[in-house]
Design a protein around this nucleic acid. Structure first.
Lengths: 243, 243
DNA sequence: CGCGCGTTTGAAATGGGTCAACAAGGGTGG
DNA sequence: CCACCCTTGTTGACCCATTTCAAACGCGCG
C-alpha cells in the first residue's frame, strides 16, 4: 500500500506512514486486513444483513439505498472516496440500507471483530469513527430538508451542487467538471421524484445553462447561480474534526 | 439524583449505582455536571451554534428542527427520554439543527470538555456514544424513505406508529394511549406536508377508526392495521447495542 | 369582551406523477 | 454485416394528490 492510495481514507491515521510508535504500527497493520477491488453493480452491503467487515472507500463511486416491500427504492446517499461503509452493521449488528458499487471501486478492508479493540486501545481513532457517524447524520438531516421542503427544481439543483462540492472536496474535479456515473433513475430515487420529472427538470437546468449532466460528467458553469436556485448557503464550510 | 430519574439515560452506565469501582464513581461524578429543568418552548440548542454542554433527556418531550432561509421549517425528529442532545456540536463543533422543548423537560447535563477524556478513559461509554449516533442515523434513513416514497396518508400513519412505538419503548404508554403534545404544525413540518393536508389526513384516519390524536394524546386501537396502512414491517425489533 | 392560537373545513389552482411512445446507443448472436 | 433486444434518456398528454387561499370555530386568557 502506498501513501497516495490511502490519502482519502478517513481513518488515515492508521496509515503506517503517520504512525507515531512501534505499537501504533503493529496495531495498524493488524487492524487493516487488506484491500479489495469490486466491479460496478457489486453489492457491498445488504440491507438487514450483518457484515463481518468494514470498508473505507479508497477510489470509485457507489450509492446507499433502501428497498421497500413494494419494490420502490430510496437512495439514501451517494458514496465517495473517503466514506466509511458498514459502521452501522459493526455497531448495531445489521445494516439499515444496502450499499452498491456504481463504478469500479477500491476498498480498504477492516475486521469488525477488531472494532472493540480499537475503542479500547485507540481512543483517537474511536473518536474519528464517532465523528464520521455524526457527519453522516448531519448530511442526512440536510437531505431531509431537501425532500421535505424544496420543490423538484430546487431538489435537483441542490443535489447537483452537493455532489459537485463533495467530489471537488476529494479532488475529483477537472477544471469545473466532475464525474457523475449514476443514472437519472438513481438521482430520482435519491430525491423522491419520478424519473420522468427528474429528466424534465434536468432538461430545464440544461436549457437555462445552469448545469449540464451528460455522458457521466457533471458541469456547473456558474456554481453561485445554481446554489441560489437550490436555496443553499454556499458559505458554509464542510465539517472538520475537532480533536 | 435517584436511580429512577436516570433509568432512561442512554449513558446510564454513568450512574453511580451501577459503577464498578471507586475510580468509576469519581469519574461519573465529575462527568455528569448536573441536572436541568426547562419549560416548554425553551431552545436547548441553536442551529449553527456550538454548545459547551451535552444533554441526556431524563423526562419530557421536544423536537429537533432546521429552519430555512425563507422561514420554512423541517422537523428532523422528535425528542424522547433517553435521547442524547448536542453530540453533533460536541463532535463537529456546531449543531446542524435546533432542539427545543415541547413539554417541561428534565435533562442530565454533561460538559463537552470532558468528552475527550471520556474517549480516553471509558471506551465502553465512547462506544455507547457511537452507537447512539449510528441509531440516529438509522432512524433518519427511515424518515428519508417515508418522505421520499410514501403518500401523505402513509406518511402520517407511519409517523403515528413510530411515535407510539418509541414512547411505548420508554414506558410512556398507559393502556395503549401515549402522550403526544406536539402540534399538527409540527407533524406537518416533520413529514413535508402542508398543515391543511395533514389535518385532513388525520381526520380521515380518525373517521376510519385507525388512530385518534386529540388533546395531546394519541390512541391507536389496532396497531397492526395502522402499520399495514403505513407499509411498515412491525416485526423489526428496535436496535440494541452489541457490546 | 376581544384577542390569539390551534384546529377544521371548503374551493380553486398546480406541481408532479403516470402512461405511452420513441430515440439513441451497445451488446449479442446469426 | 444485419436483426434483435435491452438499457437509458427524452418528450407529450392527461390527471390527481397535495398545495394554496380563505374563512370559520372553539377555547383559554388577559
Amino acid at each position: 500500500m502506498t501513501r497516495t492510495s490511502c490519502a482519502a481514507c478517513p481513518l488515515r491515521r492508521f496509515e503506517v506512514f503517520e504512525a507515531f510508535s512501534a505499537d501504533d504500527i503493529a496495531f495498524t497493520q493488524s487492524f487493516k486486513s487488506g484491500e479489495m477491488q469490486v466491479e460496478p453493480g457489486t453489492t457491498l452491503m445488504l440491507e438487514g444483513m450483518p457484515s463481518p467487515q468494514l470498508f473505507t472507500v479508497l477510489a470509485g463511486l457507489g450509492l446507499r439505498h433502501k428497498t421497500l416491500e413494494d419494490g420502490q427504492r430510496q437512495v439514501i446517499n451517494f458514496v465517495l472516496p473517503g466514506d466509511l461503509i458498514g459502521l452501522q452493521a459493526a455497531i448495531m449488528g445489521e445494516m439499515a440500507h444496502s450499499v452498491e458499487a456504481t463504478t469500479d471501486m477500491t476498498l480498504c478492508v477492516f475486521n469488525r471483530a477488531d472494532l472493540w479493540r480499537l475503542f479500547r486501545t485507540q481512543p483517537q481513532r474511536a473518536f474519528d469513527l464517532t465523528w464520521l457517524s455524526a457527519v453522516e447524520e448531519h448530511f442526512l438531516g440536510e437531505t431531509l430538508v431537501a425532500l421535505g421542503r424544496r420543490s423538484a427544481q430546487q431538489r435537483v439543483a441542490w443535489a447537483l451542487v452537493r455532489i459537485h462540492a463533495r467530489l471537488r472536496a476529494v479532488g475529483m474535479d477537472h477544471n469545473g467538471a466532475v464525474p457523475m456515473p449514476w443514472r437519472q433513475r438513481d438521482l430520482a430515487d435519491a430525491l423522491g421524484l419520478s424519473l420522468v420529472h427528474t429528466n424534465k427538470t434536468l432538461g430545464r437546468l440544461r436549457d437555462s445553462g445552469l448545469a449540464r449532466w451528460s455522458d457521466g460528467t457533471l458541469l456547473i458553469p456558474d456554481m453561485a447561480a445554481l446554489a441560489r436556485m437550490a436555496g443553499i448557503d454556499l458559505a458554509a464550510p464542510p465539517p472538520r474534526p475537532l480533536i
